[in-house]
Design a protein around this nucleic acid. Sequence first.
DNA 1: GTGAAAGCGCTAACAT
DNA 2: ATGTTAGCGCTTTCAC
Lengths: 333, 333
Amino acid sequence: MTSSGRQPARPKRATIEDVAREAGVGRQTVSRALNDQAEIAPETRQRVLEAAARLGYRPNAMAKGMRMQRSDVIGLVVSDIANPFYPAVARGVYDQAEASGCSVVLYNTDAEPVRERAALEDVLSRSARGVVGFFYGTSEAALAGYAAVVPLVVADRLLTDPDMMSVSNDFAAGTRAAVAHLVQRGHTELGMLDSSVGVAVDERRTSFLAACRDFGLGDLSERVVQGPPSIEGGTAAATALLSAYPQVTGVFAFNDLMGVGAVQAVAALGRRVAADCAIVGFDDLEMSAYLDPPLTTVRIDKYVHGQMLVKTLLAQEPQRLVLPVTLIPRATA
Amino acid sequence: MTSSGRQPARPKRATIEDVAREAGVGRQTVSRALNDQAEIAPETRQRVLEAAARLGYRPNAMAKGMRMQRSDVIGLVVSDIANPFYPAVARGVYDQAEASGCSVVLYNTDAEPVRERAALEDVLSRSARGVVGFFYGTSEAALAGYAAVVPLVVADRLLTDPDMMSVSNDFAAGTRAAVAHLVQRGHTELGMLDSSVGVAVDERRTSFLAACRDFGLGDLSERVVQGPPSIEGGTAAATALLSAYPQVTGVFAFNDLMGVGAVQAVAALGRRVAADCAIVGFDDLEMSAYLDPPLTTVRIDKYVHGQMLVKTLLAQEPQRLVLPVTLIPRATA
DNA sequence: GTGAAAGCGCTAACAT
DNA sequence: ATGTTAGCGCTTTCAC
């Protein structure tokens, strides 16, 4: 019964006008009934609702958005949804958006500046309710420019402008905990695998350097080697690091992906993970606990991060949130 | 320079009218220049383009969509983007959509019928270009009803209606390969961990049963135990299966997540994975190769799946594609 | 409490 | 080659 028309059919949807006619009232009355706005006779209201149901009426989102000069769309900008870090964040964003009656449009930028701008422009062209996301290739000035035109919440980035909204994770504390853990395990010769992507993701590196200094480990700037934040990138970076500095027995990775890569590298180098070379990752991906061996890491609550991104966006009170992180000791350190 | 206005500002965007005025031409001329449509004097065109650039003009997607009675949105419906199976598909969908000038709106349904319908309705209300996705809780009749109103490509589902578009993976072949592999490894007492989610995902189960019959393993219907398609679900299901049928030495899991859960269960039961009980998963998640131990599985090319979903959608010629899968032997079987 | 008019920004169709 | 008219479906404003 729901199946009837074929491909070429594409019947027209009922409009508010149709509902009005069906209910024997004016357009406006229908609008009022549907959005239960101002005062309207309960009886009329009922009649309209029934007529709408009968016609299978669904409001046209674009017409509504056009009139209201604003849609119920929330843009979600990530560098790559296939990177296991983002899906959980995306789910948090989605659930919060859904709870707020919003739809989410997804953008993958691969951290490329042009595509980050394109995503922002697209969001603007949709008169979106707002945008949340990870911008690694766009300057803060440029972001501020967009923030002036559309509600924008930036994720995981230190901003100087106090009027901009952001939700980040406590990288400083997490990094410090990682270094402390490594030191406590007896590792004093540390090194770091840093991400080579993006102009604005140096918080983990600077925190690492600062923590090492505080722990009396000296200036380890030389021991930070960069690479793509992927498993392969981690393997390459770790290989480079351990080749150049064989004395290193403790590695702090930008994220779990690089951490996994480091595990591979250490094994390939004939060293025992943990015993000969400890590894601490960052993020705590779903998979990390089931790896061979289970990865010691700093947990970020990705789902909550996503939720807070949207909550902050909709709250509209400029604020900068910093979410707590937790060290999760497992087998690699 | 891009930074100027503050939160309250929200300056109005330039409209096509503004560009027309700026360029000293009519609205329509601007429209033509921007969409490089019909014949227009190259010189005028140039002038318009410059004016548009000067004003930072960006077309209003909703106004355009309203007029055209169709937007450039493609809906992507998944049960849970946080499930590691979907992100790669989503990326394929996104890349193909982006290449076709479309934006993608994401929907998470948790395989709940109401939410699958809600996603479809939302897509309709946006006059979307089309929808692609995984529908586990909606009847084919209902899907056909939507397909009559909006281009729809159904993923991983056997459809009877030849007019409906679908892109699936070759579960039959994959399952057969898995069973063959298990048999070849000397396992003749098999069991399966099936998903308990959704009304329409029994292809893996029926294929498994058929394959077992073909291999002379008898009717194993009793040995199919269901559970949520997650790691925990796999652990529970495997525990139940192995407790009820201790003679089972070969387990075929609905997906890698359940496979990982099975690995945990086997270990917890004091049995050696592979030697005492072999396990084959399905999907080949990114993580599966790095697990402890690496999981033997049937690979689905998730990215290509996503791409084909959109290609099929935009091609608009009703077709049903079945993508090839590959058995990836690793340590668990 | 309800209806009528106006207009959001755009493009298809029809002038010119 | 360019401008004008009309109208997509909705809500805001103002009548009644």
